[in-house]
Amino acid sequence: MILRNIELASITDKIAELALEANVRLRPDVLASLKAALSVEESPMGRRVLEQLIENAKIALESALPICQDTGIVTVYVKLGRDARIEGDLFESVQEGVRRAYLEGYLRKSIIRHPALGVENTGDNTPAAVEIEMVDGDSVDLTVMPKGGGSENVSSLKMLPVSGGLTAIEGFVLEVAAGSAAACPPLILGVGIGGNFADVAGSAKRALLRRIDDRNKEPRLADLEERLLKRVNGLGIGPAGLGGRVTALAVKVEERSCHIACLPVAVSVSCHALRSASGTVVPSSTVVP
């Protein structure tokens, strides 16, 4: 078998680059969706807010300022090629990239070491959460996702009664959306259904990585997403919670197999500043053992 060397320094460099990019450059699909929302929104205040958000994205990119002062807690998704060889501590090389971006990029450091006591800022916005998945190939795909505290706070997980089925699922999503006026709507809702208590929240959050305008490959779930979006927008919460037609830009559902007695559902709420950036690190050399 031929293995290909991935330099840890390249991973650090790429993470630093992506963390900065995610904070400063609004995802093109999100920006396009905000522009589309402007043609739907009827509330004058809602329209004003949407205009500000579109202008904000432009200024952030031009002046390399963060889109939001809450530069978040970072999750890094690593897709590690099975034929890639890494010598050393992959986890630490990712943290080093996050550290560099936050220290050198004038991003806010919002992480405390002892949340139970509410003390000791780590000073560099680490540690980031790191999820590693093995995939085919010999390269490493990286996605950096910073997420703010306000939208994390309204996210929720519930073990629903199996008898409740779709009705209970939709009710729960609506309940979470109804409590999200302060979480900077228009929102993007990632919904995880199934799996288990521990990983359903992960599914919900990963759903936010899907393109705003994509369509669920599973027609049943695509219908559910559309129906939920319509119902959430019927709440009237509107941009910034000031009232209006556009409360959410998208609802994304991810489903996983699950125990017959359980129906875990998680809703990961994202503000309109849904931030992520992806890139790939390719091998620098080939190793023939």
């Binding site: 807010v49 500000q52 904000n56 889109i67 800022n121 000073g123 500043a273």
Partner: peptide, 26 residues
Amino acid sequence: ATGGAAALLSTFVTRCEVFAWPELGP
């Protein structure tokens, strides 16, 4: 004020300094 519009809002700030309790960081 509009949340998540921090780059735009910063253009309306002409001066900005830590005033008290710098040990609290952010």
